[in-house]
Protein backbone atom coordinates (compact mmCIF):
# COMPACT_ATOMS: atom_id res chain seq x y z
CA UNK A 1 0.00 0.00 0.00
CA UNK A 2 1.13 3.55 -0.66
CA UNK A 3 -0.03 6.49 1.48
CA UNK A 4 1.46 9.99 1.70
CA UNK A 5 -0.16 12.70 3.85
CA UNK A 6 0.90 16.32 3.31
CA UNK A 7 -0.23 18.84 5.93
CA UNK A 8 0.54 21.78 3.64
CA UNK A 9 -1.67 20.57 0.80
CA UNK A 10 -1.22 23.88 -1.01
CA UNK A 11 2.29 22.74 -1.96
CA UNK A 12 0.89 19.91 -4.08
CA UNK A 13 -1.56 22.32 -5.72
CA UNK A 14 1.38 24.58 -6.61
CA UNK A 15 3.41 21.61 -7.88
CA UNK A 16 0.52 20.81 -10.24
CA UNK A 17 0.61 24.36 -11.59
CA UNK A 18 4.35 23.97 -12.09
CA UNK A 19 3.99 20.80 -14.14
CA UNK A 20 0.82 20.94 -16.15
CA UNK A 21 1.79 23.53 -18.76
CA UNK A 22 4.78 21.46 -19.91
CA UNK A 23 3.56 17.91 -19.34
CA UNK A 24 0.31 16.17 -20.28
CA UNK A 25 1.11 13.02 -18.39
CA UNK A 26 3.89 11.70 -16.14
CA UNK A 27 4.81 8.75 -13.95
CA UNK A 28 4.97 9.45 -10.19
CA UNK A 29 7.65 7.07 -8.93
CA UNK A 30 7.14 6.26 -5.26
CA UNK A 31 9.68 4.55 -3.03
CA UNK A 32 10.42 4.63 0.68
CA UNK A 33 12.67 7.65 0.00
CA UNK A 34 9.80 9.69 -1.36
CA UNK A 35 8.09 10.64 -4.61
CA UNK A 36 10.07 11.37 -7.80
CA UNK A 37 8.88 12.41 -11.23
CA UNK A 38 10.95 12.92 -14.35
CA UNK A 39 9.46 13.66 -17.75
CA UNK A 40 10.28 15.50 -20.95
CA UNK A 41 7.83 17.87 -22.57
CA UNK A 42 6.29 16.68 -25.84
CA UNK A 43 9.01 18.35 -27.95
CA UNK A 44 11.82 16.69 -25.93
CA UNK A 45 13.49 20.08 -25.52
CA UNK A 46 12.87 20.46 -21.81
CA UNK A 47 12.75 18.07 -18.87
CA UNK A 48 11.03 18.38 -15.49
CA UNK A 49 12.43 16.62 -12.45
CA UNK A 50 10.43 16.68 -9.21
CA UNK A 51 11.55 15.30 -5.88
CA UNK A 52 9.39 15.18 -2.72
CA UNK A 53 11.21 13.54 0.19
CA UNK A 54 9.33 11.07 2.42
CA UNK A 55 10.33 12.92 5.60
CA UNK A 56 8.55 16.03 4.33
CA UNK A 57 5.19 14.27 4.69
CA UNK A 58 3.20 14.09 7.92
CA UNK A 59 2.66 10.40 7.24
CA UNK A 60 4.42 8.38 4.55
CA UNK A 61 4.09 4.67 3.83
CA UNK A 62 5.36 2.85 0.75
CA UNK A 63 5.33 -0.89 1.17
CA UNK A 64 6.55 -1.57 -2.39
CA UNK A 65 8.03 0.71 -5.05
CA UNK A 66 5.20 2.02 -7.15
CA UNK A 67 5.07 3.97 -10.42
CA UNK A 68 1.75 5.71 -10.97
CA UNK A 69 1.10 6.98 -14.50
CA UNK A 70 -1.13 10.02 -14.26
CA UNK A 71 -2.85 12.30 -16.70
CA UNK A 72 -1.83 15.68 -15.28
CA UNK A 73 -4.83 17.48 -16.72
CA UNK A 74 -7.14 15.17 -14.78
CA UNK A 75 -4.97 15.36 -11.66
CA UNK A 76 -5.03 19.14 -11.91
CA UNK A 77 -8.83 19.14 -12.05
CA UNK A 78 -8.95 17.00 -8.90
CA UNK A 79 -6.42 19.14 -7.03
CA UNK A 80 -8.44 22.25 -7.88
CA UNK A 81 -11.14 20.69 -5.65
CA UNK A 82 -8.79 21.04 -2.66
CA UNK A 83 -8.71 24.25 -0.64
CA UNK A 84 -5.35 25.84 0.06
CA UNK A 85 -5.71 25.03 3.76
CA UNK A 86 -6.58 21.35 3.19
CA UNK A 87 -4.45 18.43 4.25
CA UNK A 88 -3.91 16.25 1.15
CA UNK A 89 -3.35 12.49 1.23
CA UNK A 90 -2.41 10.44 -1.83
CA UNK A 91 -3.02 6.71 -1.51
CA UNK A 92 -3.03 3.63 -3.68
CA UNK A 93 -3.09 -0.13 -3.17
CA UNK A 94 -0.13 -2.11 -4.54
CA UNK A 95 -0.67 -2.98 -8.25
CA UNK A 96 -3.67 -0.67 -8.21
CA UNK A 97 -5.09 0.83 -11.38
CA UNK A 98 -6.48 3.81 -9.51
CA UNK A 99 -5.13 6.41 -7.07
CA UNK A 100 -7.18 8.21 -4.42
CA UNK A 101 -6.73 11.81 -3.27
CA UNK A 102 -8.21 12.72 0.11
CA UNK A 103 -8.69 16.37 1.11
CA UNK A 104 -9.32 17.12 4.80
CA UNK A 105 -10.33 20.58 5.96
CA UNK A 106 -8.18 21.84 8.88
CA UNK A 107 -10.94 21.24 11.44
CA UNK A 108 -11.86 17.90 9.82
CA UNK A 109 -15.45 18.98 9.32
CA UNK A 110 -15.18 18.34 5.56
CA UNK A 111 -13.40 15.34 4.04
CA UNK A 112 -13.45 14.73 0.26
CA UNK A 113 -12.00 11.85 -1.68
CA UNK A 114 -11.42 11.59 -5.42
CA UNK A 115 -10.42 8.40 -7.20
CA UNK A 116 -8.60 8.68 -10.53
CA UNK A 117 -7.70 6.01 -13.06
CA UNK A 118 -3.98 5.43 -13.56
CA UNK A 119 -2.31 5.10 -16.97
CA UNK A 120 0.33 2.69 -18.24
CA UNK A 121 3.22 4.98 -19.11
CA UNK A 122 6.46 3.42 -20.19
CA UNK A 123 8.33 6.69 -19.91
CA UNK A 124 12.06 6.53 -20.49
CA UNK A 125 14.13 8.27 -17.85
CA UNK A 126 17.22 10.24 -18.79
CA UNK A 127 20.52 10.12 -16.94
CA UNK A 128 21.37 13.62 -15.76
CA UNK A 129 25.15 13.81 -15.24
CA UNK A 130 26.44 15.51 -12.10
CA UNK A 131 27.77 18.84 -13.42
CA UNK A 132 30.03 21.41 -11.82
CA UNK A 133 28.38 24.45 -13.40
CA UNK A 134 30.43 27.39 -14.65
CA UNK A 135 27.83 29.84 -13.32
CA UNK A 136 25.03 29.63 -10.78
CA UNK A 137 22.71 32.58 -10.30
CA UNK A 138 20.24 32.83 -7.44
CA UNK A 139 17.64 35.57 -7.82
CA UNK A 140 14.12 36.37 -6.64
CA UNK A 141 11.72 34.05 -8.47
CA UNK A 142 9.30 36.93 -9.10
CA UNK A 143 12.14 38.87 -10.72
CA UNK A 144 13.00 35.98 -13.01
CA UNK A 145 9.33 35.55 -13.96
CA UNK A 146 9.11 39.26 -14.75
CA UNK A 147 12.25 39.16 -16.89
CA UNK A 148 11.01 36.16 -18.89
CA UNK A 149 7.61 37.74 -19.40
CA UNK A 150 8.97 41.14 -20.44
CA UNK A 151 11.73 39.94 -22.76
CA UNK A 152 9.66 37.27 -24.50
CA UNK A 153 7.75 40.14 -26.08
CA UNK A 154 10.86 41.02 -28.07
CA UNK A 155 11.85 37.66 -29.44
CA UNK A 156 11.42 33.95 -29.17
CA UNK A 157 14.94 33.52 -27.80
CA UNK A 158 16.66 34.97 -24.79
CA UNK A 159 20.41 35.24 -24.27
CA UNK A 160 21.53 34.82 -20.64
CA UNK A 161 25.08 36.11 -20.13
CA UNK A 162 26.82 35.75 -16.80
CA UNK A 163 30.00 37.56 -15.82
CA UNK A 164 31.48 38.40 -12.43
CA UNK A 165 29.79 41.81 -12.51
CA UNK A 166 26.35 40.38 -12.93
CA UNK A 167 23.93 38.65 -15.26
CA UNK A 168 22.36 40.09 -18.40
CA UNK A 169 19.18 38.86 -20.05
CA UNK A 170 18.66 39.94 -23.69
CA UNK A 171 16.13 39.40 -26.45
CA UNK A 172 15.84 40.89 -29.88
CA UNK A 173 13.24 40.72 -32.62
CA UNK A 174 11.14 42.73 -35.05
CA UNK A 175 10.14 45.45 -32.58
CA UNK A 176 13.62 45.91 -31.19
CA UNK A 177 15.94 44.74 -28.47
CA UNK A 178 15.60 44.43 -24.71
CA UNK A 179 18.43 44.08 -22.19
CA UNK A 180 18.06 43.57 -18.45
CA UNK A 181 21.16 43.61 -16.28
CA UNK A 182 21.08 42.43 -12.69
CA UNK A 183 24.03 43.27 -10.50
CA UNK A 184 25.20 40.95 -7.77
CA UNK A 185 23.61 42.11 -4.52
CA UNK A 186 26.07 44.13 -2.49
CA UNK A 187 24.68 43.21 0.90
CA UNK A 188 22.51 40.15 1.42
CA UNK A 189 20.17 41.19 4.21
CA UNK A 190 17.05 39.47 2.90
CA UNK A 191 18.26 36.13 1.57
CA UNK A 192 15.36 35.55 -0.78
CA UNK A 193 15.60 38.99 -2.37
CA UNK A 194 19.28 38.80 -3.15
CA UNK A 195 20.97 38.24 -6.47
CA UNK A 196 23.89 35.93 -5.76
CA UNK A 197 26.25 34.87 -8.55
CA UNK A 198 28.92 32.19 -8.30
CA UNK A 199 31.05 32.23 -11.42
CA UNK A 200 33.93 29.99 -12.37
CA UNK A 201 34.00 31.23 -15.95
CA UNK A 202 31.76 33.62 -17.90
CA UNK A 203 28.96 31.92 -19.82
CA UNK A 204 26.54 33.19 -22.47
CA UNK A 205 23.80 30.88 -23.80
CA UNK A 206 20.62 31.25 -25.86
CA UNK A 207 17.30 29.68 -24.81
CA UNK A 208 13.75 29.57 -26.14
CA UNK A 209 11.57 32.00 -24.17
CA UNK A 210 8.46 29.86 -24.31
CA UNK A 211 10.03 27.16 -22.17
CA UNK A 212 11.49 29.68 -19.71
CA UNK A 213 8.01 31.16 -19.31
CA UNK A 214 6.58 27.68 -18.69
CA UNK A 215 9.20 27.11 -15.99
CA UNK A 216 8.14 30.28 -14.17
CA UNK A 217 4.77 28.65 -13.44
CA UNK A 218 6.66 27.27 -10.43
CA UNK A 219 7.24 30.77 -9.04
CA UNK A 220 4.66 30.37 -6.25
CA UNK A 221 6.68 27.46 -4.83
CA UNK A 222 9.70 29.47 -3.76
CA UNK A 223 10.72 33.08 -3.25
CA UNK A 224 14.00 32.46 -5.02
CA UNK A 225 15.08 30.50 -8.07
CA UNK A 226 18.51 29.20 -9.04
CA UNK A 227 19.84 29.13 -12.61
CA UNK A 228 22.84 26.90 -13.36
CA UNK A 229 24.74 27.26 -16.61
CA UNK A 230 27.77 25.83 -18.38
CA UNK A 231 28.82 26.23 -22.01
CA UNK A 232 26.80 24.02 -24.39
CA UNK A 233 24.93 22.08 -21.70
CA UNK A 234 21.29 22.38 -20.67
CA UNK A 235 20.29 25.19 -18.31
CA UNK A 236 18.94 24.12 -14.93
CA UNK A 237 16.18 26.22 -13.34
CA UNK A 238 15.54 25.05 -9.77
CA UNK A 239 12.79 26.00 -7.34
CA UNK A 240 13.01 24.61 -3.80
CA UNK A 241 9.78 23.30 -2.31
CA UNK A 242 9.87 24.34 1.37
CA UNK A 243 11.89 21.70 3.25
CA UNK A 244 10.39 18.77 1.33
CA UNK A 245 12.14 18.88 -2.04
CA UNK A 246 12.51 20.72 -5.33
CA UNK A 247 11.37 21.01 -8.90
CA UNK A 248 14.13 21.30 -11.52
CA UNK A 249 13.68 22.23 -15.16
CA UNK A 250 16.32 21.45 -17.77
CA UNK A 251 16.40 23.28 -21.08
CA UNK A 252 18.71 22.53 -23.98
CA UNK A 253 20.43 25.65 -25.33
CA UNK A 254 19.93 26.93 -28.87
CA UNK A 255 23.28 26.50 -30.56
CA UNK A 256 24.62 28.62 -33.43
CA UNK A 257 24.83 26.42 -36.51
Amino acid sequence: MFEARLLQGSLLKKVMEALKELLNEAAWDCSDAGIQLQAMDNSHVSLVSLNLRAEGFDKYRCDRNLSMGMNLGSMSKILKCASNEDIITIKAQDNADTVTFVFESPDQDKVSDYEMKLMNLDQEHLGIPETDYACTIRLPSSEFARICRDLSQFGESMVISCTKEGVRFSATGDIGTGNIKLAQSAKVDKEEEAVVIEMQEPVSLTFACRYLNSFTKATSLSKSVQLSMSPEVPLVVEYKIEDIGHVRYYLAPKIED
Binding site: H125, L126, Y250, P253, I255
Partner: peptide, 14 residues
Protein backbone atom coordinates in the same frame (compact mmCIF):
# COMPACT_ATOMS: atom_id res chain seq x y z
CA UNK B 1 20.77 31.10 -37.09
CA UNK B 2 20.69 29.28 -33.77
CA UNK B 3 18.86 25.99 -33.72
CA UNK B 4 17.17 24.25 -30.80
CA UNK B 5 18.80 21.01 -29.77
CA UNK B 6 16.79 18.19 -28.15
CA UNK B 7 17.71 17.22 -24.60
CA UNK B 8 18.57 13.74 -25.77
CA UNK B 9 21.66 15.30 -27.42
CA UNK B 10 22.90 15.96 -23.89
CA UNK B 11 21.26 13.43 -21.57
CA UNK B 12 21.27 9.74 -22.44
CA UNK B 13 18.32 7.42 -21.68
CA UNK B 14 18.93 5.28 -18.62
Amino acid sequence: MSSQKPLTNFFKPL
